[in-house]
């Protein structure tokens, strides 16, 4: 009695190559679609998160700005200084020194200063000697 060659019979179920190719390509396409969809979803979640963060930061900035504005208001500064017994007053007219171009030749001034420094150095040098 001749035994059936089972291995040989299995060859009959092999899918045709083009069909397999289409199936594999379809599967790949489906997988890439799923992957892209997941990626989009994940980026969407990130964007939402960043949007929420931006809103929160905006809230925080406004809150801080309001506090800062309040803190440096003239009334508050005066009150804080008063707590430290500091009273600020404007200078009297005769205490105001206005800067203006006195017409001094700066080159000459620098030379003068440098030469006086040299003399000082020399003097010191003499003392040290």
């Amino acid at each position: 009695m001749i035994r059936k060659n089972r291995k040989k019979r299995l060859h009959g179920f092999v899918l045709p190559a083009p069909f397999t190719g289409i199936v594999v390509a379809g599967a790949l396409l489906a997988l890439s679609y799923v992957w892209l969809d997941c990626r989009c979803e994940s980026i969407g979640r990130d964007i939402k998160k960043l949007e929420a963060e931006k809103v929160q930061l905006k809230k925080d900035i406004l809150s801080e700005e309001s506090r800062w504005s309040k803190m440096k208001s003239p009334a508050n500064i005066e009150a804080v200084l008063a707590k430290h017994n500091i009273v600020m007053t404007w200078p009297r007219q005769d205490q105001v020194v206005r800067l203006y171009d006195a017409g001094v030749n700066t080159d000459v001034a620098v030379k003068k200063r440098n030469s006086s420094l040299t003399y000082m150095k020399r003097d010191k040098a003499v003392i040290h000697d």
Partner: peptide, 21 residues
Amino acid sequence: PGRGIICDCKGENNILALNLF
């Protein structure tokens, strides 16, 4: 939208009115 701020002549350094959350 957020309402604009009002500030003195120094601009945004001195805010006089703003919207708070």
